[in-house]
Design a protein around this nucleic acid. Structure first.
Lengths: 139, 139
DNA sequence: CCATTATATATTGTGCGCAATATAATTTTG
DNA sequence: CAAAATTATATTGCGCACAATATATAATGG
């Protein structure tokens, strides 16, 4: 078997799926005026308000080079605020505005819409997630 | 269950895995001086030389906005050539240079190195690929 | 045959994603 | 306590990825 054939690649479908997912999210998140990475940041903040850039970055595996400009865009949309921590002036604490909190209501149906779009049995989805988590812990 | 919790997201692990894979490829492809998307284009050309931009794009699900500058970078590395088709002046035919052909030899061990890095049984990998293909056909 | 439509690639603009580096604040150490 | 090391964020630069648009060529239809 030719391991350099595209159809024999394992990573290509994963790469493609990730892109297609983000594309699907583009339409689902259009109403919220959020990109997928921005949506992920909002998920983190909806779970726990007031987190440092690095805390958000650890949860999403994103560095300041990605987050700083992204957070500034969320600030411009007036759904988050950025403020230097009093206790440690190096840190910037990100918090939700009222509009940022309210956006969560509008986001409620996004996850189910996405699972619907994938139209794959929940059981199979769990197996999939398991394998992915395993690979992730190895990489 | 709170569907907006990060840990309950299905797509986040896929998004993360795709990124980690590309990161892993970065080190594997360092010697070849290729990025992962560039490597994918080379896979397509190694399978069949002389293809139009759109033919490559269809196989990789990439449009000219992505491919045109990428192919120009491969041209600058002198591993591919870009030439307008005689038969149809709208098309640009991409072909491998001698160096581009030779690069295939150096790439031989990349796929196995990647599978090794993921360290997951081949059987499980096949199940994974199956599920992903199913989701992709739905999306 | 010429106007219309379709097709192929290129260009522009925006937003990641990450490496490398810079800057500033804090902590550690001698 | 002051110098050195660490930490947190910001900046710069590059390469995708994709929407929207532009441009040039080809195909089609009256």
């Amino acid at each position: 078997m030719d391991h350099l054939k595209l159809e024999n690649q394992v990573c290509f479908p994963i790469y493609t799926l990730a892109k297609e997912m983000v594309n699907k999210y583009r339409s689902l998140l259009e109403e919220l005026e959020l990109t997928y990475p921005q949506y992920l940041v909002m998920l983190v903040l909806w779970e726990k308000d007031e987190q440092s850039v690095s805390a958000i970055g650890e949860k999403l595996n994103l560095d300041s080079g990605t987050l700083t400009p992204l957070l500034k865009r969320l600030e411009q949309k007036e759904i988050v605020m950025r403020k230097r921590s009093q206790a440690d002036e190096r840190m910037v604490v990100i918090s939700l505005t009222a509009a940022g909190h309210q956006l969560k209501t509008k986001a409620q149906n996004v996850p189910s819409a996405m699972v619907d779009a994938m139209s794959i049995p929940v059981a199979e989805l769990k197996v999939l997630k398991n394998s992915i988590d395993k690979i992730l812990s190895n990489l």
